[in-house]
Design a protein around this nucleic acid. Structure first.
Ligand SMILES: [Mn+2]
Ligand SMILES: [Mn+2]
Ligand SMILES: [Zn+2]
Ligand SMILES: [Zn+2]
Lengths: 138, 138
DNA sequence: ATCCCATATTGGATAGCGTCTAAGCCGAGT
DNA sequence: ACTCGGCTTAGACGCTATCCAATATGGGAT
């Protein structure tokens, strides 16, 4: 993701201060931030950036395949900068902590043709749920 | 799910016209309805039922393990009456159609200890995405 | 059959998250 | 420097879900 700005420029993106700052926030920590969390961090570097622009930019990054959306519940969507290494997620039901995980095996191969109903299946998301060590102790 | 009312009564549920109607709606079609879709169908049989009661009842059925919540995107949660036979979901990115699927293999077993980070992992959801035959043709 | 009250229901207010719009701004090619 | 199509902005808006205080009722007790 470090050369994200180069790739985006190469795709004809007009480079603006706002887009640069959003990209920097995502590049900074490999965590799963909500749009408002991204906005809060962006405001530190560019105080006048608006929520709408953060939403717009995140949406574009998702369309370009540079960032993944993670929808784990009915609260805010989260944005995952780790789009280039396939992985799944492990979520604590107590505190909401999210960890990247890399299971062995390929769930796509586990779906037989007879269970595909003629669909063109292109993608699979696996979400493990449980309790983190801290929440399990409580 | 046909003896759902019996099971609920056995658990000390106070039986009301509203709860009966919500249960009947879920029992009727094995599809994945939103809360408002459940409400729309319930109103046909009990015109004065409120949205709040539908939300309350669905939440209770989820707590009791009789119905599952399916969160596939940032639109409305869907309620799955097929809670007693484990399965996963296949979703069309075009029209949003949802199908139950039964993959072979067990994704829980595919998550090695080294990828569990001390979590107590209790549950796994798999969501396949693609295009249904109709949307793939368009 | 009637009473009673803990529990359920109700409509409307409220909140969270995201999208949209109209007006002004600005990057970058010329 | 000029120009213009794309970008940004603030705030309005929409959808989904929850909360609330007032009212109604299921069903055990009498
Ligand atoms: Mn991730
Ligand atoms: Mn299902
Ligand atoms: Zn936790
Ligand atoms: Zn479709």
């Amino acid at each position: 993701m470090s050369d994200l700005l180069e790739r985006l420029r190469g795709r004809g993106w007009r480079m603006t201060a706002q887009r640069r700052v959003v990209a920097e926030v995502l590049d900074g920590e490999h965590v799963h931030l909500t749009a408002d969390e991204v906005h809060a961090r962006a405001v530190v570097k560019l105080p006048e950036i608006s929520r709408a622009t953060v939403y717009n930019t995140l949406g574009e990054l998702v369309s370009l395949g540079e960032v993944l959306e993670v929808t784990t519940d009915k609260r805010a969507k989260r944005y995952d900068p780790n789009a280039h290494r396939p992985h799944h997620h492990l979520i604590c039901a107590g505190c909401g902590a999210i960890r990247d995980v890399h299971p062995s095996g390929n769930p796509l191969a586990d779906l037989p043709d007879s269970e595909r109903f003629g669909f063109t299946v292109s993608n699979v998301e696996v979400t493990y749920r449980g309790l983190c060590p801290h929440c399990a102790a409580a």
